[in-house]
């Protein structure tokens, strides 16, 4: 693999991790517009542990994810009192506050950024991404995912049927934050440098955009969204500036004609039916 290919794949991995961090709360009907803040918590916590306390990278990154989940748990109770648009705006404000806090935190370099000597090579990033994807896919086959779908479709009915809606919401929010934190920790150790300005609102927003581009109704959606977002500009060989123009046009067009995203359960069924027809010619499915 050339250096260029490895570089693209590493970016893809970080985008996939971010995508699943956004996807989990979204599966419970929570639009998290502050995911960059949670990445920053994980990145700075992990970087501080390896740099100041000489921890190994793996436990530091995991603790970073834990720290991010902890922040989510602490803020979840007040924040999840709000709903819909208010929740999206509250997470947005939270993301801004978190990155502004790191911008002022002298322990981790404040506005000058933070050097991270410990280095996580590309294969480690690939392995961690694979593990996260595996965990999310496993979760999607458990009753937990089923509960989240029920909650997303109708929170009131789910509550009447005996689901603990608040606990589920908090769990989805915190697991998403943990994934974001792990992604942030990996990012810090792969690129050896972090600055608060990187974890800005644009990062949160673009992540949400490609997750919704992929679709949130199936667990494949975020993966496809991240793939399209990362690889399409590379394939088309457009310049750095124009890739976002292209991406934005794609989003607007897609939301107008296919608001449920690229991958929907319906698409899966139709693909399945098509394959069946191929396999048994003559017996067309009505």
């Amino acid at each position: 693999m050339s250096g260029y290919q490895t570089g693209v794949l590493v970016i893809l991995c970080f985008n996939i991790i971010a995508a699943y961090a956004v996807y989990l709360p979204l599966a419970a009907n929570q639009l998290n517009l502050g995911i960059a803040g949670f990445m920053a918590v994980g990145a700075y916590a992990a970087a501080w542990l390896t740099t100041e306390l000489n921890w190994a990278i793996a436990p530091a990154v995991l603790v970073g994810g834990g720290a991010s989940a902890l922040v989510a748990l602490v803020v979840a109770t007040p924040i999840l009192r709000t709903q819909g648009i208010y929740l999206a705006l509250a997470t947005f404000a939270l993301g801004q506050v978190i990155s502004a806090v790191f911008l002022n935190l002298e322990v981790v370099g404040a506005a000058a950024g933070y050097q991270v000597p410990a280095y996580a090579p590309a294969p480690a990033v690939f392995a961690a991404t694979a593990a996260i994807v595996a965990v999310v896919f496993y979760l999607s086959r458990t009753r937990f995912a089923l509960y989240l779908t029920a909650l997303k479709n109708d929170a009131t009915v789910s509550e009447l049927l005996g689901l603990n809606v608040r606990a589920l919401q908090i769990a989805a929010f915190a697991i998403g934050a943990a994934i974001a934190g792990i992604g942030g920790g990996l990012y810090a150790h792969h690129f050896s440098f972090i600055e608060a300005q990187h974890f800005n609102v644009a990062l949160s927003i673009t992540t949400v955009l490609y997750v919704l581009l992929g679709g949130t109704q199936t667990v494949w959606g975020p993966l496809v969204g991240a793939l399209v977002y990362t690889l399409l500009p590379e394939v088309l060989r457009v310049g750095a500036g124009w890739r976002y123009v292209l991406f934005a046009l794609f989003i607007i067009g897609f939301m107008a004609v296919r608001p449920r995203g690229l991958v929907t359960p319906d698409l899966g069924r139709r693909l399945g039916a098509m394959l069946m027809r191929r396999a048994r010619p003559g017996k067309a499915v009505p």
Partner: peptide, 17 residues
Amino acid sequence: LVSSLGFLVLLQSLVLA
């Protein structure tokens, strides 16, 4: 909401480019 965010990204990146 998401689609209008797309417009924000579009306008911003058009000017950037």
